[in-house]
């Protein structure tokens, strides 16, 4: 008790500045807090399993002659082309790990702030609603980009290194941009999806269940509707299928269903729009019931 009285209150002699990116501390802290969670680092590392498998396949494709003895006939089973990257970036396991990492790392981004009434502390600072949302969105973006854009682009670079030539890039010069575009789309979709659910509850565990449940239940629902109405358009109800459709279109892969990918894109965009509307309404310094 004595220590705090002895010195008394002292002023800070520095000067407050106006940040160009006020959301940056929120993003940095959000990522750091996610990595402090028990077991999260292992989950995050596990999400790179598909990347290592893809890396192995790319390496094998360049060393195919060495494996010729294992291959029957003249047919080479492994071809590295945009379809390969589409398959890698839209495969079910990667999507599952992405949802897993986001669920355990970011589900509480807003839910925890709501639960512990922290929003009023944020908005007692020179922060706008958009800064707060941008900071939280940046946390989701970090994880999505780290699991899609970064390994995707690295695999392209490694393909060039293993091949020892730029022929692959010369043949598909648009591929890196497509990977970036797909990663950006995933970032926007998952950003909206995670924050929409995170702002809907104060209970992080409930949000985690919702994140998994809504994502995979949509796929089950789509199959049921398809079975009943026998229409391929039912896949529009499935979030994983919509992502695959848009991914295949962007990365030059083969469309899984005869449904225009633009429609799948609209579904994903609709979820983002819904998320934006809900976030703007629900993120505020104080609860105002009118």
């Amino acid at each position: 008790m004595a220590v705090i009285r002895e010195r008394g209150y002292e002023h800070w002699d520095g000067r407050l500045t106006e940040r160009r990116f006020p959301w940056w501390p929120i993003a940095r802290t959000g990522v750091r807090l996610a990595f402090r969670k028990k077991g999260f680092k292992f989950a995050f590392a596990g999400a790179y399993i598909p990347s290592f498998i893809a890396l192995g396949l790319i390496y094998a494709s360049e060393q195919i002659e060495n494996f010729r003895t294992f291959v029957r006939g003249e047919q080479i089973p492994l071809k590295i082309d945009p379809g390969f990257f589409a398959g890698y970036l839209t495969n079910g396991f990667l999507l599952f790990m992405l949802v897993f990492v986001l669920a355990f790392g970011t589900a509480g981004l807003i839910a925890e702030d709501l639960k512990h009434s922290a929003l009023q502390l944020y908005f007692a600072r020179p922060l706008g609603k958009k800064d707060y949302i941008a900071g939280k969105l940046a946390v989701v973006a970090f994880f999505v980009l780290m699991l899609t854009a970064v390994p995707g682009l690295l695999l392209v670079v490694l393909k060039l290194i293993f091949a020892g030539s730029f022929a692959f890039l010369a043949q598909y010069p648009w591929l890196p941009l497509s990977i970036l575009a797909y990663a950006a789309l995933l970032t926007l979709f998952f950003g909206g999806y995670v924050l929409l659910l995170s702002v809907s509850s104060r209970n992080t565990r409930y949000v985690i269940v919702l994140l998994f449940g809504a994502f995979y239940f949509s796929a089950v629902l789509a199959e049921i509707v398809r079975g009943i109405f026998r229409t391929p358009y039912a896949i529009l109800l499935s979030l994983p299928a919509d992502i695959r459709q848009v991914g295949a279109a962007l990365l030059g892969g083969k469309l899984a269903k005869a449904v225009p990918p633009a429609l799948s894109f609209l579904v994903l965009a609709g979820i983002c729009a819904l998320a934006a509307a809900v976030l703007v309404r629900k993120v505020r310094g104080v609860e105002v019931i009118k």
């Binding site: 639960k115 007692a124 020179p126």
Partner: peptide
């Protein structure tokens, strides 16, 4: 908000920090 400090009535903190 840059010039004032606010101590709210309700308990508020950030879990994990």
């Amino acid at each position: 908000r840059r010039s004032v400090g606010y101590m709210p009535e309700s308990d508020c903190f950030i879990a994990g920090m």
